[in-house]
């Protein structure tokens, strides 16, 4: 069950896994996610389904090492099994022909954007993709995106690849060129989604953001993932993960994401120590 059949290193600390999960592969629509648990003592973490292969009965996930669980996940190899994998969860993206769609992925957030962008392209939209990251090493799925995107732009904070600057600079440039954008969709760090939404709000461009709240069950049972959208409490796991970017309370999202910062660090340090000791 839940056997890893392929692992591909995308960049330092970011891995792509293809996992056997025929039921999930069969049902999944772009925008949905899974929750996985590696072993009996593990935590449940949500990850977007970046791709599926219905014939093979597999799903693809992309995970960046940010803490203990993702570090452990990154150490797994083909033929390893995940103890638990459940999904597809969340509301699928509303896909239709809007006209011109800009998909903005920040860092590993591009793994969330990528399947939605492709579905948007397949629905007949003119698709512009912007991939941003701190540095060249962290740009992922560039070639894959280039295959279908009508235009592709890359920005890096340090200018090591593509344009030096932020994704919002690139977006503004596109807007300033006079292109009529019908929809922006974005996924990545909360702060990036906040600034993208601020910019598009000025221009009245409809914006969809995919939120990465902390979750436990992922089925609407616990409310750990609650976010404020338009002043109302919503559960990212069942009402989302996508919401109207102009209505999301990002400051609250960022504070809630930091809930377990200390515990996460403790668990990560402890794990690193453990693998170092093992190495000795």
């Amino acid at each position: 069950m839940n056997r890893i059949i392929k692992k591909k290193r995308l960049t330092e600390g970011v891995n792509l896994f293809e996992i056997e999960a025929p039921l999930i592969a069969n049902k999944r629509k772009p925008g949905q996610f899974v929750i996985l648990r590696i072993n009996e003592k593990g935590e449940r973490i949500p990850l977007t389904i970046a791709d599926v292969n219905k014939e093979k009965g597999t799903i693809t996930i992309v995970a960046q090492v940010v803490g203990k669980t993702t570090k452990h996940l990154g150490s797994l190899n083909p033929n390893d099994n995940l103890l638990d994998l459940v999904g597809p969860l969340g509301q699928p993206t509303h896909i239709e022909k809007f006209g011109m769609v800009v998909a903005i992925g920040g860092g590993v957030g591009h793994a969330v954007c990528y399947p939605i962008a492709r579905a948007m392209k397949e629905a007949g939209n003119y698709l512009i993709s912007i991939i941003g990251a701190r540095t060249k090493e962290l740009i992922i799925l560039e070639d894959e995106t280039r295959k279908f995107a009508d235009e592709l732009y890359i920005t890096t904070d340090d200018g090591s690849y593509g344009k030096k600057g932020l994704v919002t600079d690139q977006l503004k440039e596109i807007i300033d060129k006079g292109k009529k954008i019908d929809l922006v969709l974005t996924a990545g760090p909360a702060i990036m989604m906040k600034f993208v939404s601020q910019l598009t709000k000025q221009y009245g461009i409809k914006t969809i953001v995919s939120l990465n709240s902390i979750m436990v069950d992922g089925t609407g049972m616990c409310g750990a993932c609650r976010v404020e959208v338009g002043g109302k409490t919503k559960f990212a796991c069942v009402d989302g993960p996508e919401f109207d970017g102009h209505e999301v309370n990002y400051d609250l999202l960022m504070k809630r994401l930091a809930t377990y910062k200390e515990e996460e660090k403790l668990a990560y340090d402890r794990y690193l120590q453990k693998i170092t000791d093992k190495g000795k």
């Binding site: 003592k41 935590e43 402890r270």
Partner: peptide, 9 residues
Amino acid sequence: FPEYDTPLR
């Protein structure tokens, strides 16, 4: 926790 991964503050 931390023997199990899920924290509760």
